[in-house]
Design a protein around this nucleic acid. Structure first.
Lengths: 141, 141
DNA sequence: GTAACTGCAAACGATTTGCAATCTC
DNA sequence: GAGATTGCAAATCGTTTGCAGTTAC
Protein backbone atom coordinates (compact mmCIF):
# COMPACT_ATOMS: atom_id res chain seq x y z
CA UNK A 1 0.00 0.00 0.00
CA UNK A 2 3.01 2.27 0.10
CA UNK A 3 2.80 4.75 -2.73
CA UNK A 4 5.26 3.84 -5.43
CA UNK A 5 7.75 6.55 -5.95
CA UNK A 6 7.82 8.18 -9.33
CA UNK A 7 11.35 8.38 -10.52
CA UNK A 8 12.73 11.10 -12.67
CA UNK A 9 14.38 9.59 -15.69
CA UNK A 10 15.82 11.23 -18.78
CA UNK A 11 13.04 9.69 -20.85
CA UNK A 12 10.26 11.11 -18.75
CA UNK A 13 11.86 14.50 -18.61
CA UNK A 14 12.23 14.48 -22.37
CA UNK A 15 8.62 13.50 -22.95
CA UNK A 16 7.34 16.21 -20.66
CA UNK A 17 9.66 18.71 -22.25
CA UNK A 18 8.47 17.83 -25.73
CA UNK A 19 4.80 18.09 -24.88
CA UNK A 20 5.24 21.30 -22.96
CA UNK A 21 7.10 22.93 -25.79
CA UNK A 22 4.83 21.71 -28.54
CA UNK A 23 2.95 24.38 -30.39
CA UNK A 24 0.51 21.83 -31.71
CA UNK A 25 -1.26 18.83 -30.22
CA UNK A 26 1.06 15.94 -30.99
CA UNK A 27 0.09 12.29 -31.08
CA UNK A 28 2.14 9.77 -29.14
CA UNK A 29 3.92 8.90 -32.37
CA UNK A 30 4.84 12.53 -32.92
CA UNK A 31 6.04 12.86 -29.37
CA UNK A 32 8.20 9.78 -29.86
CA UNK A 33 9.60 11.25 -33.05
CA UNK A 34 10.58 14.45 -31.27
CA UNK A 35 11.95 12.71 -28.24
CA UNK A 36 14.14 10.58 -30.48
CA UNK A 37 15.85 13.70 -31.77
CA UNK A 38 17.09 14.39 -28.28
CA UNK A 39 17.34 10.93 -26.84
CA UNK A 40 18.03 8.41 -29.59
CA UNK A 41 16.98 4.88 -28.79
CA UNK A 42 13.93 5.62 -26.71
CA UNK A 43 11.24 2.99 -27.14
CA UNK A 44 7.67 3.68 -28.10
CA UNK A 45 6.38 1.86 -25.04
CA UNK A 46 8.33 4.21 -22.83
CA UNK A 47 6.76 7.21 -24.46
CA UNK A 48 3.29 5.73 -24.06
CA UNK A 49 4.00 4.93 -20.44
CA UNK A 50 5.39 8.37 -19.77
CA UNK A 51 2.46 10.09 -21.41
CA UNK A 52 -0.02 8.04 -19.40
CA UNK A 53 1.83 8.93 -16.25
CA UNK A 54 1.92 12.62 -17.06
CA UNK A 55 -1.78 12.60 -17.84
CA UNK A 56 -2.57 10.80 -14.63
CA UNK A 57 -0.54 13.23 -12.61
CA UNK A 58 -2.31 16.10 -14.30
CA UNK A 59 0.74 17.59 -15.98
CA UNK A 60 -0.61 17.27 -19.49
CA UNK A 61 -3.97 16.63 -21.08
CA UNK A 62 -5.04 13.99 -23.52
CA UNK A 63 -7.58 14.46 -26.27
CA UNK A 64 -9.31 11.83 -28.33
CA UNK A 65 -11.22 12.57 -31.46
CA UNK A 66 -12.61 10.08 -33.96
CA UNK A 67 -12.85 6.28 -33.56
CA UNK A 68 -9.60 5.45 -35.24
CA UNK A 69 -7.70 8.63 -34.57
CA UNK A 70 -4.65 8.59 -32.34
CA UNK A 71 -4.81 10.30 -28.98
CA UNK A 72 -3.34 13.78 -28.93
CA UNK A 73 -1.60 15.47 -26.07
CA UNK A 74 -1.87 19.01 -24.86
CA UNK A 75 0.57 20.93 -22.72
CA UNK A 76 -1.80 23.59 -21.57
CA UNK A 77 -3.16 22.72 -18.18
CA UNK A 78 -4.62 26.15 -17.63
CA UNK A 79 -8.35 26.26 -18.10
CA UNK A 80 -8.85 26.47 -21.79
CA UNK A 81 -11.04 24.87 -24.38
CA UNK A 82 -10.73 23.32 -27.80
CA UNK A 83 -11.84 24.04 -31.28
CA UNK A 84 -12.28 20.78 -33.13
CA UNK A 85 -12.68 20.77 -36.88
CA UNK A 86 -15.05 17.91 -37.66
CA UNK A 87 -13.84 17.92 -41.21
CA UNK A 88 -10.09 17.66 -41.00
CA UNK A 89 -9.64 16.90 -37.34
CA UNK A 90 -7.52 19.96 -36.72
CA UNK A 91 -7.36 21.06 -33.12
CA UNK A 92 -6.86 24.52 -31.68
CA UNK A 93 -6.84 25.95 -28.18
CA UNK A 94 -9.28 28.69 -27.31
CA UNK A 95 -9.86 30.72 -24.25
CA UNK A 96 -13.61 30.89 -23.91
CA UNK A 97 -13.38 32.01 -20.35
CA UNK A 98 -16.21 29.90 -19.02
CA UNK A 99 -16.31 29.66 -15.29
CA UNK A 100 -19.13 27.33 -14.45
CA UNK A 101 -17.89 26.78 -10.95
CA UNK A 102 -21.35 27.09 -9.54
CA UNK A 103 -22.84 24.85 -12.15
CA UNK A 104 -20.21 22.29 -11.49
CA UNK A 105 -20.87 22.41 -7.81
CA UNK A 106 -24.54 21.93 -8.48
CA UNK A 107 -23.80 18.96 -10.69
CA UNK A 108 -21.53 17.59 -8.07
CA UNK A 109 -24.21 17.49 -5.41
CA UNK A 110 -27.07 16.58 -7.70
CA UNK A 111 -25.27 13.64 -9.12
CA UNK A 112 -23.12 12.53 -6.25
CA UNK A 113 -20.16 13.11 -8.47
CA UNK A 114 -16.84 14.54 -7.38
CA UNK A 115 -15.92 17.05 -10.05
CA UNK A 116 -12.26 17.50 -10.80
CA UNK A 117 -12.43 19.54 -13.95
CA UNK A 118 -14.07 19.99 -17.28
CA UNK A 119 -13.31 20.13 -20.93
CA UNK A 120 -15.28 22.11 -23.46
CA UNK A 121 -15.00 21.08 -27.07
CA UNK A 122 -16.36 23.34 -29.70
CA UNK A 123 -17.12 21.51 -32.91
CA UNK A 124 -17.44 22.91 -36.37
CA UNK A 125 -15.38 23.61 -39.43
CA UNK A 126 -12.10 25.43 -39.60
CA UNK A 127 -11.51 28.16 -42.16
CA UNK A 128 -9.89 25.85 -44.68
CA UNK A 129 -12.67 23.30 -44.53
CA UNK A 130 -15.39 25.91 -44.62
CA UNK A 131 -14.16 27.18 -47.93
CA UNK A 132 -14.09 23.71 -49.43
CA UNK A 133 -17.08 23.25 -51.72
CA UNK A 134 -18.90 20.17 -50.60
CA UNK A 135 -17.60 18.58 -47.43
CA UNK A 136 -18.49 14.95 -47.26
CA UNK A 137 -16.07 12.71 -45.48
CA UNK A 138 -14.70 13.47 -42.08
CA UNK A 139 -11.23 12.64 -40.95
CA UNK A 140 -12.11 12.26 -37.36
CA UNK A 141 -15.62 10.87 -37.61
CA UNK B 1 -20.86 14.00 -58.05
CA UNK B 2 -24.39 12.69 -57.63
CA UNK B 3 -25.21 12.24 -53.98
CA UNK B 4 -25.24 8.55 -53.10
CA UNK B 5 -28.56 7.50 -51.78
CA UNK B 6 -28.68 6.13 -48.30
CA UNK B 7 -30.74 2.97 -48.20
CA UNK B 8 -32.82 1.85 -45.32
CA UNK B 9 -31.87 -1.66 -44.40
CA UNK B 10 -32.99 -3.86 -41.50
CA UNK B 11 -29.45 -3.68 -40.09
CA UNK B 12 -29.34 0.08 -40.07
CA UNK B 13 -32.76 0.35 -38.57
CA UNK B 14 -31.78 -2.11 -35.87
CA UNK B 15 -28.60 -0.24 -35.01
CA UNK B 16 -30.42 3.06 -34.76
CA UNK B 17 -33.15 1.45 -32.72
CA UNK B 18 -30.65 -0.04 -30.29
CA UNK B 19 -28.76 3.18 -29.75
CA UNK B 20 -31.89 5.24 -29.40
CA UNK B 21 -33.33 2.90 -26.81
CA UNK B 22 -30.14 2.48 -24.84
CA UNK B 23 -30.21 3.82 -21.35
CA UNK B 24 -26.46 3.81 -21.19
CA UNK B 25 -23.70 4.76 -23.62
CA UNK B 26 -22.90 1.52 -25.40
CA UNK B 27 -19.70 0.74 -27.25
CA UNK B 28 -19.87 -0.61 -30.79
CA UNK B 29 -19.38 -4.10 -29.37
CA UNK B 30 -22.32 -3.63 -27.04
CA UNK B 31 -24.46 -2.33 -29.85
CA UNK B 32 -23.54 -5.37 -31.91
CA UNK B 33 -24.43 -7.64 -29.02
CA UNK B 34 -27.85 -6.07 -28.71
CA UNK B 35 -28.49 -5.98 -32.42
CA UNK B 36 -27.68 -9.68 -32.61
CA UNK B 37 -30.55 -10.44 -30.26
CA UNK B 38 -32.92 -9.04 -32.82
CA UNK B 39 -31.13 -9.75 -36.06
CA UNK B 40 -28.91 -12.81 -35.67
CA UNK B 41 -26.04 -12.95 -38.09
CA UNK B 42 -25.28 -9.28 -38.35
CA UNK B 43 -21.59 -8.64 -38.86
CA UNK B 44 -19.48 -6.35 -36.73
CA UNK B 45 -18.39 -4.38 -39.77
CA UNK B 46 -21.97 -3.58 -40.57
CA UNK B 47 -22.53 -2.22 -37.10
CA UNK B 48 -19.41 -0.08 -37.33
CA UNK B 49 -20.46 1.20 -40.73
CA UNK B 50 -23.97 1.92 -39.56
CA UNK B 51 -22.77 3.74 -36.47
CA UNK B 52 -20.40 5.88 -38.50
CA UNK B 53 -23.20 6.73 -40.86
CA UNK B 54 -25.58 7.64 -38.07
CA UNK B 55 -22.95 9.84 -36.49
CA UNK B 56 -22.22 11.55 -39.73
CA UNK B 57 -25.88 12.22 -40.38
CA UNK B 58 -26.21 13.65 -36.91
CA UNK B 59 -28.66 11.09 -35.58
CA UNK B 60 -26.42 9.92 -32.74
CA UNK B 61 -23.28 11.14 -31.02
CA UNK B 62 -20.00 9.44 -30.48
CA UNK B 63 -17.82 9.85 -27.44
CA UNK B 64 -14.23 8.87 -27.04
CA UNK B 65 -12.51 8.63 -23.73
CA UNK B 66 -9.12 7.17 -22.91
CA UNK B 67 -6.41 6.01 -25.35
CA UNK B 68 -7.47 2.40 -25.58
CA UNK B 69 -11.11 2.76 -24.66
CA UNK B 70 -13.74 1.92 -27.22
CA UNK B 71 -15.86 4.68 -28.67
CA UNK B 72 -19.23 5.02 -27.02
CA UNK B 73 -22.45 6.13 -28.61
CA UNK B 74 -25.11 8.43 -27.31
CA UNK B 75 -28.69 8.61 -28.48
CA UNK B 76 -29.17 12.05 -27.07
CA UNK B 77 -28.46 14.65 -29.69
CA UNK B 78 -30.07 17.48 -27.77
CA UNK B 79 -27.68 19.89 -26.13
CA UNK B 80 -26.47 18.15 -23.06
CA UNK B 81 -23.23 17.44 -21.34
CA UNK B 82 -21.36 14.50 -19.91
CA UNK B 83 -20.12 13.38 -16.58
CA UNK B 84 -17.03 11.26 -17.08
CA UNK B 85 -15.66 9.17 -14.26
CA UNK B 86 -11.90 9.21 -14.70
CA UNK B 87 -11.66 6.17 -12.51
CA UNK B 88 -14.01 3.64 -14.01
CA UNK B 89 -14.85 5.35 -17.28
CA UNK B 90 -18.55 5.44 -16.55
CA UNK B 91 -20.47 8.03 -18.49
CA UNK B 92 -23.63 9.92 -17.60
CA UNK B 93 -25.63 12.63 -19.29
CA UNK B 94 -26.19 15.91 -17.48
CA UNK B 95 -28.07 18.99 -18.31
CA UNK B 96 -25.83 21.78 -17.16
CA UNK B 97 -27.82 24.33 -19.03
CA UNK B 98 -24.91 26.25 -20.40
CA UNK B 99 -25.85 28.53 -23.20
CA UNK B 100 -22.65 30.05 -24.43
CA UNK B 101 -24.19 31.18 -27.66
CA UNK B 102 -22.54 34.53 -27.45
CA UNK B 103 -19.22 33.06 -26.51
CA UNK B 104 -19.44 30.67 -29.39
CA UNK B 105 -20.25 33.42 -31.78
CA UNK B 106 -17.29 35.36 -30.51
CA UNK B 107 -15.08 32.34 -30.99
CA UNK B 108 -16.46 31.84 -34.44
CA UNK B 109 -15.49 35.28 -35.61
CA UNK B 110 -12.24 35.52 -33.68
CA UNK B 111 -10.99 32.27 -35.01
CA UNK B 112 -12.59 32.12 -38.40
CA UNK B 113 -14.23 28.93 -37.29
CA UNK B 114 -17.74 27.85 -38.17
CA UNK B 115 -19.19 26.54 -34.93
CA UNK B 116 -21.69 23.73 -35.21
CA UNK B 117 -21.98 22.71 -31.59
CA UNK B 118 -20.12 21.98 -28.41
CA UNK B 119 -19.59 19.28 -25.91
CA UNK B 120 -18.84 19.86 -22.27
CA UNK B 121 -17.23 16.99 -20.41
CA UNK B 122 -17.12 17.17 -16.70
CA UNK B 123 -14.42 14.97 -15.26
CA UNK B 124 -14.17 13.56 -11.81
CA UNK B 125 -15.09 10.51 -9.81
CA UNK B 126 -18.48 8.87 -9.64
CA UNK B 127 -20.03 7.90 -6.33
CA UNK B 128 -18.75 4.34 -6.45
CA UNK B 129 -15.20 5.34 -7.21
CA UNK B 130 -15.19 8.12 -4.67
CA UNK B 131 -15.95 5.68 -1.90
CA UNK B 132 -13.16 3.35 -2.95
CA UNK B 133 -10.23 3.77 -0.61
CA UNK B 134 -7.25 4.62 -2.71
CA UNK B 135 -7.96 5.07 -6.37
CA UNK B 136 -4.92 4.48 -8.42
CA UNK B 137 -5.41 3.07 -11.86
CA UNK B 138 -7.82 4.52 -14.31
CA UNK B 139 -9.87 2.55 -16.78
CA UNK B 140 -10.11 5.29 -19.28
CA UNK B 141 -6.76 6.90 -19.10
C1' DG C 1 -31.43 -3.95 -63.20
C1' DT C 2 -28.01 -1.67 -60.72
C1' DA C 3 -25.73 0.55 -57.29
C1' DA C 4 -25.65 0.24 -52.44
C1' DC C 5 -25.28 -2.89 -48.66
C1' DT C 6 -23.91 -7.06 -46.12
C1' DG C 7 -20.96 -10.61 -43.90
C1' DC C 8 -16.71 -12.64 -43.66
C1' DA C 9 -12.04 -12.65 -42.92
C1' DA C 10 -7.88 -10.47 -43.35
C1' DA C 11 -5.47 -6.10 -42.62
C1' DC C 12 -4.43 -2.09 -39.79
C1' DG C 13 -2.91 1.05 -36.49
C1' DA C 14 -2.72 2.55 -31.92
C1' DT C 15 -1.74 1.07 -27.48
C1' DT C 16 -0.42 -2.36 -24.02
C1' DT C 17 2.19 -6.05 -21.89
C1' DG C 18 5.91 -9.62 -20.59
C1' DC C 19 10.45 -9.86 -19.56
C1' DA C 20 15.50 -9.46 -18.89
C1' DA C 21 18.77 -5.83 -18.53
C1' DT C 22 19.56 -1.25 -16.55
C1' DC C 23 19.28 2.70 -13.85
C1' DT C 24 17.57 5.80 -9.88
C1' DC C 25 17.15 6.70 -5.24
C1' DG D 1 20.93 -3.01 -3.33
C1' DA D 2 16.05 -3.00 -4.16
C1' DG D 3 12.69 -1.89 -6.87
C1' DA D 4 11.22 1.12 -10.49
C1' DT D 5 12.07 1.88 -15.38
C1' DT D 6 13.53 0.83 -19.98
C1' DG D 7 13.60 -1.23 -24.72
C1' DC D 8 12.32 -4.83 -27.41
C1' DA D 9 9.09 -7.77 -29.40
C1' DA D 10 4.95 -10.02 -29.22
C1' DA D 11 0.22 -9.60 -28.07
C1' DT D 12 -4.26 -6.98 -27.79
C1' DC D 13 -7.99 -4.54 -29.12
C1' DG D 14 -10.86 -1.47 -31.58
C1' DT D 15 -11.80 -0.34 -36.09
C1' DT D 16 -11.38 -0.53 -41.16
C1' DT D 17 -11.16 -2.66 -45.67
C1' DG D 18 -11.46 -5.97 -49.82
C1' DC D 19 -14.50 -8.70 -51.98
C1' DA D 20 -18.19 -11.81 -53.70
C1' DG D 21 -22.85 -12.45 -52.87
C1' DT D 22 -27.37 -10.14 -51.72
C1' DT D 23 -30.81 -6.62 -51.46
C1' DA D 24 -33.34 -2.16 -51.71
C1' DC D 25 -35.22 1.05 -54.77
Amino acid sequence: MIAEELRSTPQRRAVLEVVQHAQDHPTAAEVLERVLEVLPGVGAATVYRSLAMLVESGQILELRLGPSAATRYDRNVENHDHLVCDQCGRLADVQVGLDPTELLNAVSSHHDFQVSGFDLRIHGRCADCSSATSPRRSTHA
